[in-house]
Structure formats: C-alpha cells, structure tokens
Design a protein around this nucleic acid. Structure first.
Length: 452
RNA sequence: GUGGAUGUGGCGUAGCUGGUUAACGCGCCAGUUUGUGGCACUGGAGAUCGUGGGUUCGAGUCCCAUCUUCCACCCCA
C-alpha cells in the first residue's frame, strides 16, 4: 500500500488488448451451455446407432495430411515448422480418418463405423458464418474392399433423428447420385470441365436458371448439351416419379443406369429405415461437395431457412485411403458443421439462448464455519443435484443477486438460526417461495422439491 | 486470391457544415432495504474517440498512412 503512489506508473503502462483471432468462435456461458447440449445430442444419436468414438490429433505431419496434394483447401492449411518437423493442422476429419484406418487396418473390424466430433482449421478469409476454427461432427462407415449400398440409406435416417432431436420439424434431406450426372455427361460426350459443370449446376437455386446457362456457356459447353443438362435437372415430381422419369430417359450409358439403380435402391431402403417421406427428397441438382464423392450424395436444408445452405452434407466415396494403402476402402459418411449451424441458428434467434444454469442449487452459507454447508452440498451432489457453494464474504443480498444472475433455480441459505435448529432455508428463485427443511430431510423429499 | 466497407467507456450507439468539462441506453458498483435476487428511485466508477503522422488558433469530426474487424465473390462446414 505504501508503494501505491509509486505503483501508479504500472497502471499507466499499456495493457494488451484482450482479443480473439478473427474467425474463431468464442461463446458466453449461456451460449456455450446450449452449444454443448447440441453437441451432446448429436453425439448421443451417433452412439445410438452403434458408431465408435474416435479422436485424432489436431496436428499431423504435413506429408501425411497433404498426401493428396492440390485443391483449394491446401492453400488454406495452417502449416508450420517446429524444429525440423513439418506440421499441419487438420482441415477436416476425413483425411485423419483415412490415415487412421490405413494405419490400423489390421486391428479394426469392418464395416468400421466411427463418429468423430472435433475442431478443424482452415485459414481462409473470414465472413459471415465462416470460421477458421470450427467443429465438424462426422460419421462414416468404412468397408473392406466393398461396402453394401444399404449403408447409404441408413445415414439419412441418422441425420433425421438428430435434427428431430434438436427440435426441428421442417427440414429436408436431399439425396442424389453422382453417377447419374457423370453418366449423363458421358452420354453427352461432355468430358471437359465436368467438375466445374457440377459446381455450376449446384448453384442453380442460388443464382437462377439464366445465370446457370450463362456460366455453362462460359465453360464452352455446347448449347445443345446445355439444354439437355437443364432439361434433366428440371425433372419434377415425387421421388418415385423422378426415378421413373430417369429410367424412361433411355440414356444408354452404364454409369447413368448404375446411378439410377443405386438411387432407387437407396430410396427404397430409406423408407425401410423409417425416414418419413416428407423429410427426404431426390434432388438432381445436388452435386456439390468434395470431388471424391462418387455415388450417393446428401445435403440437408431447413426449409424455413433455406438461405442457411446445407447444414449437413456427405456422400459415398469409392476409396478412402488410396494415398496411404493399396487396400480398397470404400465408405459413406456425412458431416454436420456444428459451429456454423449454431452460429446461424443463434443469429436468426431460432434457438433460444435463455439463460439456463448448470447448477441446480446455490448454497449460501451465512456462517464462518463451512463444515455444515460443505457436507450438505456433498449430500446433494451425491443424489445428482448440481450444487455450488457461494464461497466468499458478501452480504446475503449480493449472494442472492448472484444466484439470480446465473439463473440458479434454488438457493439454500444456511445461517446461524438454521444451524441451531438443524435447518436450511430453501428458496425457489422463480416463485420466491421459501421454506425450512431439516438438514436430515431424506433424499427423496429433497429431490421432490428441487427436481419437481 | 478479387472487390467493398468499418473502428467512439465492458456491450450497443449519438456526436449537425471542426469550437470550451465527449452524450445516451444496457451492463457494472453503492445506497434506499444492517439475513433475501428480479422492479423502481438516487448516487458513483469507467473512453487520452484503433494507431501514427499532417492541415488548423483549435479535430472524435478534414487529409495521408497503417493496423483491425466486417461484408461480398471464390471455395466450403
């Protein structure tokens, strides 16, 4: 205290401004609670379907992570050297999965069903709803040499369960098959720029039909091909009608036929797994995604918030780990971009961030000796009541205010009067109702008061 | 990578064509209520107006630079 005057020099010293890197989401407690709840629901559903947990390192050797060279994502990778080790941060969970499966091929049981929820990193330009660090919630089913097509039909059901569980009703899981479009291109002898064409087609909802025509001509697609492609993606009707129309197009191309067959099979099996008809739709414009998808592809939309874009996408790939092993490992998987999903739902007030407390009870001791409050807190915790003791010398008023701000539903005051009578005073913070309970009250009674 | 914006107490904002002690709401702290929160009232703390230069008698307000963040495109979750 004597140094206080001299110490003022320090106060004038510049403090470092506490900042968070752009593109990194950091939440307030009440938001974090909600975020964690969503994450937990997703995880529980994955488990419910028998998927095994997996956690891989955020850092990998660059040579491993970048085995598949090129592409847009590689430019965005966080990469650095520590000593003479060239290290990269994972930019998705699929590449680490591929490495993991190749590495542990001998000890894993196939079909290998794993879920992984974790953060991934992409150093791209930030913008609305786009993050540099974000959670992906992945499930994949990996087969050894082959993976039955019926697996493609189970994933939509799992996605359905999750979004149902998250409280959404009006959403659509769109499915398509890459082979259909690729087969169509083959039959049109449109081999050039097929990936680019797919991207343009995928954007039709966003940019409109005319813009698609314009983009396609820019790609040097002959105009008769453009009209055939458009005619094709504009096929309307129910799911069954669409399949029928596809079959009746009489396109003599093996790939195309295979694609239509797969789509029909998947559709049939989706119904068997119990996905309601109104929640899935064949959408022939779904083409986006990583270029390694080779068969079934999925995209999921909230119909009232179509502008969010796909909130869950995935598909079938023929060879997961071709850069690590000669084994052929086909798989099918989907990924939920939880960070973006949460951010957007929050922004649109779709999810309610009403303060919800973690603690069920705040014990407020008004005596110096904490033995009784501490013991009582343990008693509550042992019967499953989340209990916090207010530690610190403050007026009762301040302690009540604290409980109020944290939205803790019950406060238990233990003061001298209470201790003398072997009592505690429990207050319902919502109704304001107070009553005395004996410190010896049995557990069932307490649970009845607190948990209702 | 391309293009366009932004920056004022913890947060959200006001500050007119440059003019004395930078305003408001929320939040925070204290009191009215010495063992009781939410409401109300009263009072209080807290900003060298992103940073550095320049123009001017004088700049949050004008000019330049720089950093930061944001938005769109690209691509994606």
């Amino acid at each position: 205290m004597v140094d206080d005057f001299i110490g003022r020099e320090d106060d004038i010293m510049n403090k470092t401004e506490p900042r968070t890197l752009s593109g990194f989401m950091e939440l307030l407690p009440e938001e974090q609670i909600l975020f964690d709840q969503m994450k937990e629901k997703i995880e529980n559903t994955y488990k419910k379907y028998g998927f095994l947990p997996l956690d891989t390192p955020i850092l990998e050797l660059s040579e491993v992570l970048l085995a598949k060279a090129g592409g847009e994502t590689e430019k965005q990778i966080y990469r650095f050297e520590k000593g003479d080790t060239d290290i990269s941060m994972r930019f998705d969970l699929t590449v680490p999965l591929a490495k993991y499966v190749a590495k542990n091929y001998g000890v894993l049981s196939f079909p290998f069903r794993r879920y992984q929820i974790g953060k991934v990193y992409r150093g791209e330009r930030t913008q609305k709803g786009r993050f540099r660090e974000f959670y992906q919630c992945d499930i994949d089913i990996i087969g050894d040499e082959e993976l039955d097509l019926v697996n493609d039909a189970e994933l939509p059901k799992i996605i359905y369960s999750i979004f149902k569980d998250l409280g959404f009703k009006d959403f659509t899981i769109c499915i398509n098959n890459r082979k259909i479009l690729n087969g169509l291109f083959e039959s049109l002898e449109q081999k050039e720029a097929s990936v680019e064409i797919l991207r343009v087609i995928d954007k039709i909802e966003k940019i409109g039909k005319d813009a698609v025509i314009e983009e396609l001509s820019k790609l040097q697609v002959p105009s008769n091909n453009i009209s055939k492609i458009l005619q094709f993606i504009e096929i309307q009707g129910t799911n069954d009608e669409k399949i029928e129309k596809l079959e009746n197009l009489n396109i003599e191309n093996e790939l195309f036929k295979q694609g239509v067959y797969e789509l029909k099979e998947v559709t049939k099996n989706i119904r068997i797994f119990g996905l309601p008809e109104e929640n899935f739709k064949i959408d022939l414009t779904i083409a986006r995604g990583l270029d390694y998808y080779t068969g079934t592809v999925y995209e999921t939309f909230l119909n009232s918030y179509r502008e969010l874009g796909s909130i869950c996408s995935g598909g079938r790939y023929e060879n997961l780990a071709e850069y690590y092993t000669d084994k052929k490992l086909p798989g099918v998987g989907v990924s939920i971009g939880l960070t973006r999903l949460f951010y957007k739902l929050n922004e649109l007030n779709i999810i309610n961030v009403n303060k919800k407390s973690i603690a069920d009870v705040l014990i407020v001791p008004m005596i110096e000796d904490l033995q009784i409050p501490a013991k009582y807190a343990e008693k509550l915790r042992n019967i499953g009541v989340n209990t916090q003791i207010y530690l610190g010398q403050k007026k009762l008023k301040a302690k009540m205010k604290y409980a109020d701000k944290l939205n803790i539903p019950y406060v238990i005051v233990i003061g001298e009067d209470e201790v003398q009578n072997n009592n505690a005073k429990i207050k319902n913070m919502q109704t304001g109702e107070e009553k005395n309970i004996s410190l010896d009250t049995n557990n069932e009674e307490i649970l009845k008061i607190i948990k209702g």
